[in-house]
Design a protein around this nucleic acid. Structure first.
Length: 918
RNA sequence: AGGGCCAUAGCUCAGUUGGUUAGAGCGCUACCUUGACAUGGUAGAGGUCGUAAGUUCGAAUCUUAUUGGCCCUACCA
């Protein structure tokens, strides 16, 4: 190739990499080329992941970007390693969230409530909305470059997941694990549904203790002493007195125990209730007297059960006071509280108020205050499956990465409460329980058959008319079956089509710690219970994304980062690399767009490294190790620098493999990053320039083949993290007939390419060049100006190496004449008189000066170095003289310290003689 | 109240089982447009690892206490 064509090629490539065109080009090629589909690889092993399904309502946020990028890195890595890989994507119906969005939409457009529209019509609208929205989420996921098998795509309310839900529900119903009962549950008045314990978040709220007098029955006045004609109750929720059905004291409380069995009057409602003795009451807390409201307090509910107290419900479904007290009917809790306090004051029953801060439950979705309320709900007894899940983790059937997350998992499963699974919503899997409407029959049963079939069959006992339970299941009920239903379970035909046996149990679950309870634990329980197997072998818990100062991203703070904007600005690869470089075993990832900018620069660096070798590519094939079947041959073929870069590459490949296997994406990313910058670009490319522009054709051909070899490996190592640019560049580097990079082999370390002495020599060589540059800058020599250098070397082998590579040294340190002697030959005659110098452990380097220098400053530098070295040497010497050290420390540690001490001693001597000779 | 996590350079973080002079990115300073790249290059400044005590030949790393921050669970009349 002549110079003219070289220039032409170079001008075709822009100086800066443009991610947009490349990204839009490659995704369709991979997808349409079926590269995301599972194919048998060289290992004859499978690797499968189920994607945590994003909500169908959602807009992709940073958490999704992180979650999916890491899964994609694993999938691409394993695919290249030769696993048969399958990544199953999906979307969640997200019961409450979706219903709320569509309800609002209908209200905005038609000013109609869902009840006005009717259940059937409402569900039809919501399905239409879902179909329209699902595509948006998929489109956004594709922008991340994820290599999921879209043919496997599942929606949580598709027929198969629905079949799974019905099957499990009926099984548990028949086993008695699912039961319906009146129980105190968390009621979300905004959503107007029960929610599970896990969906309640406790937040600190300013409140107050209100001290209220309750008069004893037959009390003559309200003025006399406590325990004579009244009791004082402290409460943060005075309005709940409308539902009080007892007052409790501790049976051992000397102050009050004589009152047990007597009657007391609830103010306002003037209800006569018993005073009871219960050990739950803490004598030391509050006033020692406790109002008991079994309908609206978890503890009181338990007390009520023990004492057979009636339950009075004071709230409507929307959280307002019901007809229990007509004066208060329709007021919300806050208003009712104020009105009650006022009325108590008027009656002289209100004593005082003490401000306090207390924890109040809020609905995770609605953020409104959750009201404990008694209602009829469906529950699952999960005790046994919880224990099975704990066992599975203890027996390493499923492992957490990082391991300590298993404690969180255990803490939830150790004492599990019954799981409230019914929701008073319309959008979701409807509970497959049917009721016979014939009053003489009243049969209740669960059926796996769909509604139409059950309806046409009628009641199995009396053939009467039937109806289905109107409630739907908690979203997590279907999510809990995700590992099974995405692979077709329980439908045998679908399982066969989706190769259930091949891909189940899945390999790794990648998710955040915030849903260990909601999801990881439930999937474990439900999958173990139904198949006896774990849903996945590993769970990698990744970081939660925060802003750059570690604050949660939130709308109110306005500190959210939109991944699509980040992609728009810096490209998908840069965003992905920010994520991988920041993901290891950390709990949080504090995301700073400046980092992404830095990694965008890295991508650009890679692009330009390619621009450099590009004109030469057509001239030569990549180095083929097969051609050099024995080490001797290979050694002869390679130069010092070739052996050095190949060994360095080898170490990086080793690190990348080990790191990704252990989910240390950060270690893998940073290792290859630093290889590209600090080894390949800074040194190997620089060292190659004279050869590529030089006259020695044979040498040039060899160098091109190695550059090409290294660059191909770099692209392969980087591909899982930054798939787009690597695939784009691969197109130029692949040999005739080679397939896309996405299916190339992932590099592994190769013992044949470990050249230890070349690594050592090169490190010394770099140290010498940096020292010369340091000297040059310290006296302001212009970068272009060439200088004379005198080096005295302690070690003959290194001297030899230096002479062999003298031209490289000249190039990189701009040295005009190199004068190199052994240190033993140093004398006043051959040491430049007027010079500045610097010492390493192996050599003394002198830069002769023609002009004047600032002796003071220069001597200061030498002295500073001397002092530092003396301190270090002193430390090591003390260590060596300490018998305890030489006797107790491992011999290799002692040997290392000895070596180091020797090196420092040499350097000390050099520095001292330099200072003395000034 | 119980449990867990964190504290390392101006900022954000690495630092494997205790073992050479504690690392990176960004930021900062000086110099440089050199035939891949100013989204660049070269050189450099800057931490003794929250505090205190202890174990050890040796501690950022282990133990205890303490301060500050975060999270989870339970509950508060």
């Amino acid at each position: 190739m002549n110079t003219q064509t070289q220039t032409q090629i170079q001008s075709e490539l822009p100086k800066t990499y443009n991610p947009k065109d490349v990204e839009s080009k490659w995704y369709p090629k991979w997808k349409n080329g079926k590269y995301f589909k599972a194919k048998k690889g060289k290992l004859n092993k499978t690797f499968s992941i189920i994607m945590p399904p994003p909500n169908v309502t959602g807009k992709l946020h940073m958490g999704h970007a992180l979650d999916n990028t890491l899964q994609d890195v694993l999938i691409r890595y394993k695919r290249m390693k030769g696993f048969e890989t399958l990544w199953i994507p999906g979307v969640d119906h997200a019961g409450i969230a979706t219903q709320a969005v569509v309800e609002k939409k209908i209200w905005d457009e038609q000013k109609k409530s869902k009840h006005q529209i009717g259940r059937k019509e409402f569900l039809k609208t919501i399905w239409e909305w879902k179909d329209a929205h699902q595509g948006l989420i998929i489109e956004q996921l594709e922008k991340l470059g994820i290599s999921a098998d879209w043919d496997y795509f599942v929606f949580t309310m598709d027929p198969i997941p629905n079949e799974a839900v019905r099957k499990v529900f009926v099984k548990w119903y028949q086993e008695g694990l699912i039961f319906q009962t009146d129980y105190i549950i968390n009621w979300d008045p905004t959503i107007q549904s029960a929610i599970s314990d896990a969906e309640v978040e406790h937040k600190e709220v300013k409140g107050a203790f209100h001290y209220i007098k309750y008069l004893l029955k037959d009390a003559t006045s309200a003025a006399a002493d406590v325990a004579v004609d009244h009791l004082i109750i402290a409460t943060t929720r005075p309005e709940t007195l409308l539902g009080d059905t007892a007052v409790a004291v501790n049976p051992d409380d000397e102050r009050f125990k004589h009152l047990i069995g007597k009657k007391i009057i609830i103010p306002i409602v003037n209800r006569e209730v018993p005073i009871i003795g219960d050990n739950h009451v803490d004598i030391t807390l509050g006033t020692g007297c406790l109002k008991v409201t079994p309908g609206h307090d978890f503890n009181d509910f338990e007390i009520g059960k023990r004492h057979n107290l009636p339950i009075v419900n004071i709230l409507n479904k929307d959280g307002t006071i019901n007809d229990v007290a007509l004066d208060y009917q329709g007021l919300n809790v806050i208003a009712a509280r104020a009105k009650i306090i006022k009325e108590l004051e008027e009656q002289g029953l209100y004593i005082k108020k003490e401000d306090c801060i207390h924890q109040v439950g809020h609905g995770q979705r609605s953020s409104s205050i959750v009201e404990p309320m008694v209602s009829k709900q469906w529950f699952v007894n999960v005790k046994k499956m919880a224990q099975e899940s704990i066992n599975a983790v203890n027996e390493n059937e499923m492992r957490f990465f990082p391991k300590n997350w298993e404690n969180t998992f255990f803490s939830w499963l150790r004492e599990p409460k019954d799981w409230c699974i019914s929701r008073q919503l319309w959008w979701g899997h409807q509970i497959p329980v049917f009721y016979c409407e014939n009053e003489n029959c009243n049969h209740i049963w669960a059926s796996v058959d769909d509604l139409e079939k059950v309806q046409s069959d009628g009641c199995p006992k009396c053939k009467g008319k039937i109806h289905q339970d109107p409630d739907v299941l908690d979203t997590w009920f279907s999510s809990g079956l995700w590992a099974l239903s995405t692979l077709g379970w329980p439908n045998e035909k679908a399982m066969k089509e989706k190769s259930f046996d091949k891909f189940f149990p899945t390999s790794t679950l990648v998710t955040g710690f915030d849903i260990i309870f909601f999801w990881v634990a439930r999937m474990m329980m439900m999958t173990l219970n139904n198949t006896g197997q774990v849903p996945f072998r590993h769970t990698y818990i990744h970081a939660i994304v925060n802003d750059k100062h570690g604050r949660k991203m939130s709308k109110s703070l306005g500190n959210g980062i939109d991944p699509l904007e980040l992609i728009e600005q810096y490209g998908t690869d840069a965003m992905r690399f920010t994520i991988t470089a920041g993901s290891g075993y950390n709990r949080y990832l504090n995301l700073d767009p400046a980092q992404t900018e830095g990694y965008r620069n890295f991508i650009n660096k890679l692009w330009n490294a390619f621009r450099f070798i590009h004109p030469f590519l057509k001239e030569e094939r990549a180095l083929d190790l097969e051609l050099h079947s024995n080490n001797h041959d290979l050694n002869n073929f390679l130069t010092h620098h070739d052996r050095w870069i190949l060994s360095a590459l080898n170490s990086v490949a080793d690190i990348c493999n080990k790191a990704i296997d252990e989910y240390r994406f950060d270690d893998a990313s940073l290792a290859i990053y630093s290889f590209v910058y600090d080894k390949f670009c800074s040194w190997y490319i620089e060292l190659s320039k004279p050869i590529l522009y030089g006259a020695d054709v044979e040498e040039k051909r060899k160098r091109i083949s190695i550059l090409k070899y290294i660059f191909r490996k770099i692209l392969a190592l980087l591909h899982p993290m930054v798939p787009f640019i690597t695939e784009e560049l691969w197109e130029n580097l692949k040999e005739e007939g080679e397939d896309l990079l996405i299916v190339q082999e992932y590099p592994e370390s190769n013992k044949k390419l470990d050249f230890i002495s070349d690594q050592n020599n090169m490190n010394k060589f770099i140290e010498i060049i940096c020292s010369i540059r340091n000297l040059r800058q310290s006296v302001n020599v212009k970068p272009k100006d060439e200088v004379d250098i005198h080096i005295f070397i302690d070690n003959p082998e290194l001297k030899n190496y230096l002479l062999q590579n003298a031209s490289s040294l000249s190039d990189l340190a701009k040295v005009k004449a190199l004068n190199c002697n052994l240190l033993s030959q140093k004398s006043t005659q051959n040491t430049p008189a007027k010079s500045i110098s610097l010492a390493t452990s192996d050599c003394e380097i002198y830069l002769p000066l023609s002009g004047l220098i600032d002796i003071e400053e220069y001597v200061g530098r030498l002295k500073k170095d001397l002092q530092k070295t003396e301190v270090e040497f002193g430390k090591l010497k003390m260590k060596l003289e300490n018998k305890n050290f030489s006797e107790n420390a491992p011999s290799e540690v002692v040997a290392e310290v000895k070596d180091k001490a020797q090196e420092l001693e040499k350097k000390l001597n050099s520095l001292r003689s330099m200072i003395a000779n000034l």
